[in-house]
Structures are given as C-alpha cells and as structure tokens.
C-alpha cells in the first residue's frame, strides 16, 4: 500500500464526482427523497396506542438500505466506466497497487456516503420527526457504514466482472437477496433454518440488526457494537478480496 497513490486516486475520483451533478444528486437527494416517499406511504396508518409508527421502525432501516443500494450502483458504474475508458487497463500498467486503487476509491465514496447519511438522517429527524430510543449519531454511524458496505461490494462485484455487462449483472445477484433476507420483510428469527443460515452470512443483516438495537435501546448495546464490527470487517475483507481478484493480465 502506498498512501501517495491512494490519496491521488481519492482526489481524482472526487474531482470526477464533482463534474457529475447527476451522481451528486443521486447520492445526496435520492435517498432523502425516497425516505419522504416512504413517510407519506404510511401517513394515514392507524396505530394502536403506544405502538411505534411504521416509519420509526422501517423508515429507520431505510436510512441504511437506500444509501446501500445507491452506493453499490454508483460504485459499479464508476468502475465500469474505468474499464470501458481503458483507464483501468492503463492503471494496471503503472506502479499503482490494486489495493491503492480500490481503497482510494473507497475513501472517496465514503466521504460522499458520509455527506449522504448526514443529509438523509437530518431529513428523517427534522422533517419527519423520526423517533427512536438511541442516539442519532449512532444511526448516522450505521448508515455511513452501510453505504460504505455498498461501495465495497460494488468494487468487489466489478473486480469479479470481466466485462462491463457482467458488472451490471451482479447488481440483482448481490443486492436483492440481501434485501429479502436482512430482516426487513420477515424477522430473521422467524425464517426457516436454511434462509436464516444464509441471512447470517450476509452483511446487510447485521446493519439492520444494529439499527433495530438502536431503535429499542437508549444506550448502545454490545450486540450493536458487535454488528458494527462485523459490517466493518465485511467492508475491509471485501476491499482486500476485490484487490486480490482484479486481474492485471487478461486474455
């Protein structure tokens, strides 16, 4: 690893992002807008006294899931452009280490993801009165971590891909099973054994569990910290695996 090359890559990716207002909108505005959608979807629900609003339960989780999908998409597409423009092949003939390239990417997108989490969490709290037991800063922490997870998985998927088309094909394979099994639609402990076992292997499940812990507890629980560590480990392993997978020599 070489910090100079990694930072140069981060600066370059951020400069590219700055040139692209649509991606900026996708990162900053779209998750917040989807959250607003989600809020009005349940605007008219009738609640038993004392029951939490759907928005407080599920909207909270959406704070992590929308950015996860958006960042996975943006990352895959950016890597795809790197491939089609021939710059990836060119970079692989320079001294840059594959890890410098991928971690440089990850840092740039993590900065974007942090801004994204700040915007959408602020919207959830101030515009829609999100009410959860735990601290908003923990919500932001998990939201950022989950979007960084999206970045790492996006980079991993594009490293596996040999063509541009394959890179996009990974999207449904990587993202949708995680959505279905993360405990959003069906609580994980009421899934059948096989699905639960798969769910236990998928990182998004731990993000969702962490958010549920924050929703229910005033103070951070050890389960929540454990979940956070697991997601962070997935991020690091994903990036390392991606840099091992990216091939310099191709047929």
């Amino acid at each position: 690893m070489n910090p100079r090359m990694m930072m140069a890559t981060t600066v370059r990716v951020l400069a590219q992002l700055r040139q692209d207002p649509r991606s900026i909108a996708l990162i900053l505005v779209v998750p917040a807008a989807l959250l607003a959608f989600f809020y009005y979807l349940f605007d008219n629900e009738t609640l038993r006294p004392g029951a939490p609003r759907t928005f407080d339960r599920v909207g909270l989780i959406m704070l992590a899931i929308f950015p996860f999908i958006v960042m996975f998409l943006i990352t895959s597409i950016t890597m795809l452009r790197e491939r089609t423009s021939g710059t990836l092949e060119r970079l692989l003939t320079t001294p840059i280490h594959k890890a410098d390239l991928l971690f440089g990417y990850a840092i740039a997108f993590s900065i974007a993801a942090t801004l994204q989490a700040l915007v959408s969490t602020a919207v959830a709290y101030w515009a829609f009165g999100l009410s959860v037991a735990g601290s908003p800063w923990l919500v932001i922490l998990v939201a950022v971590l989950t979007s960084v997870l999206g970045v790492a998985l996006g980079l991993l998927a594009s490293a596996f891909a040999h063509t541009e088309f394959q890179a996009v094909q990974f999207m449904p394979v990587v993202v949708i099973p995680q959505l279905l099994l993360c405990g959003l639609f069906v609580a994980r402990d009421s899934m059948n054994g096989v699905l639960q076992a798969i769910s236990n292997l998928l990182p998004l499940s731990y993000s969702v569990e962490a958010l549920q812990q924050i929703a229910e507890n005033m103070d951070p629980t050890s389960t929540m910290w454990g979940d956070v560590l697991i997601v962070a480990a997935f991020v690091v392993c994903g990036l390392i695996l991606a840099s091992l997978t990216l091939r310099r020599r191709t047929a």
């Binding site: 100079r4 090359m5 140069a8 890559t9 600066v11 370059r12 400069a15 590219q16 040139q19 692209d20 423009s85 021939g86 710059t87 092949e89 060119r90 970079l91 003939t93 320079t94 001294p95 840059i96």
Partner: peptide, 26 residues
C-alpha cells in the same frame, strides 16, 4: 504504455489527468 484508444478520464481536465498519472509515478 499508451493504449490504442486514448485512455484518459473524459470528465477531468487535461491538467487533472496528467497530474494524476504524475502523482502515481511520484
């Protein structure tokens, strides 16, 4: 190595492109 199809970042300026490759090589 200069590839047959020009391989630079279209959305960056000339200067940003050259500086990036310069930075990689120190």
């Amino acid at each position: 190595y200069v590839t047959q199809a020009a391989s630079v970042y279209k959305d960056l300026t000339v200067e940003e492109n050259v500086r990036y490759f310069a930075a990689i090589h120190g």
